[in-house]
């Protein structure tokens, strides 16, 4: 009887090579866990296009319009790289999309928050993409080859995303009083949700041990969260903006920034579907997919006709 973690050959491959590739034998649970994690990551990229995409038509300069259009386009691309990685595990993209549309698979709840002002675009780039980078860099060494390779590709493009967000906020912070206030307001709203992107505290994360053994998860939620805070605090000072945490304090002993307690009840509400924009995000996604059916049908019909002609 095989241990749920995998038989000796699989574990040896994992420990010696550090990489599992699509045709390697693998435990069913490893395969299922990866499909779910990669797919939900992909869904997050696709849904994540919406809160920012909403501002392309309202961008206040052509320079910013171009940058934002390129960024949102990149996110679509990231979704595609990830769906492609998930498909190497023997599942079709259409099944994954179905799971998303039917609520069986999820996306990062950070994208259920509304983008209330232009400054939110900067805050998302600086904080949300910043947090994503901290999460994603370790995944570049994830045990599953296709996922790791997709992550390398994504990480290369992601630093542009964070940098443009920082740049946008810097311009606002140094702008008119109204612009500065806009930037500060956005940071005040996006800071805590960004911290919650790293997931529940380690003590409340049930599946971590197995994911760690399988080389899917290299660092704990709390470790990554602390890393993000340590990076972001000096950056906030460079931006001339404050962070909405009165308990933020440099700890000379640990050489980390101590921060206040996170109210995870909001996160759990949003996960459970009670977020501000949950319905809106899903409706846009499912409508695009359903409305596109006649186009996909037509494309396949045309392809079939061409094949017949060639035969």
């Amino acid at each position: 009887m095989h241990d749920e973690l995998g038989d000796p050959e699989f574990l040896a491959l994992l420990d010696n090579e550090g990489r599992i590739e699509p045709r390697d034998a693998m435990p069913d649970a490893y395969r299922k866990t990866l499909i779910r994690q990669i797919a939900q990551h992909a869904h997050s990229e696709i849904i994540g296009m919406q809160p920012e995409g909403n501002w392309i038509t309202r961008a206040p300069s052509l320079h910013r319009k171009a940058i934002l259009l390129a960024k949102v386009q990149d996110e679509a691309g990231h979704g595609l790289y990830l769906y492609a990685a998930a498909e190497t595990l023997g599942i079709d993209r259409s099944e994954l999309l179905e799971a998303l549309h039917e609520g069986r698979q999820k996306y990062s709840s950070i994208f259920n928050y509304p983008t209330k002002s232009w400054a939110d675009i900067g805050a998302i780039g600086w904080l949300v993409d910043g947090a994503a980078i901290v999460n994603q860099v370790p995944l570049c060494r994830c045990s599953y080859g296709p996922y790791a390779r997709a992550m390398i590709r994504i990480c290369k493009e992601e630093s542009f995303h964070q940098r443009q967000g920082f740049d946008l906020l810097l311009t606002l912070s140094n702008g008119t009083p109204a612009q500065h206030a806009m930037a500060q307001d956005a940071v005040d709203r996006w800071w805590w949700p960004s911290l919650m992107m790293f997931g529940p505290p380690d003590a409340e994360s049930p599946n971590s041990a197995r994911s760690t053994r399988w080389g899917i998860k290299r660092f704990s939620n709390d470790e990554l969260r602390q890393r993000f805070v340590d990076i972001a605090v000096p950056q906030s000072e460079a931006l001339g903006l404050t962070l909405p945490d009165p308990d933020l304090r440099w700890n000379a002993e640990t050489e980390h920034w101590d921060f206040g307690e996170i109210d995870f009840s909001e996160l759990y509400d949003v996960i459970a579907g009670k977020g501000y924009c949950n319905d809106e995000r899903m409706e846009r996604r499912t409508t695009a997919h359903n409305d596109g059916e006649w186009v996909r049908e037509a494309a396949m019909a045309y392809a079939a006709k061409q094949k017949e002609k060639a035969a």
Partner: peptide, 20 residues
């Protein structure tokens, strides 16, 4: 740019982005 998040396939979101 209005087609992004609304296109029939994700590949087409990217194409519209490119053209835009």
């Amino acid at each position: 740019s209005e087609w992004l998040t609304r296109a029939p396939e994700i590949e087409l979101d990217i194409a519209f982005g490119n053209i835009g």
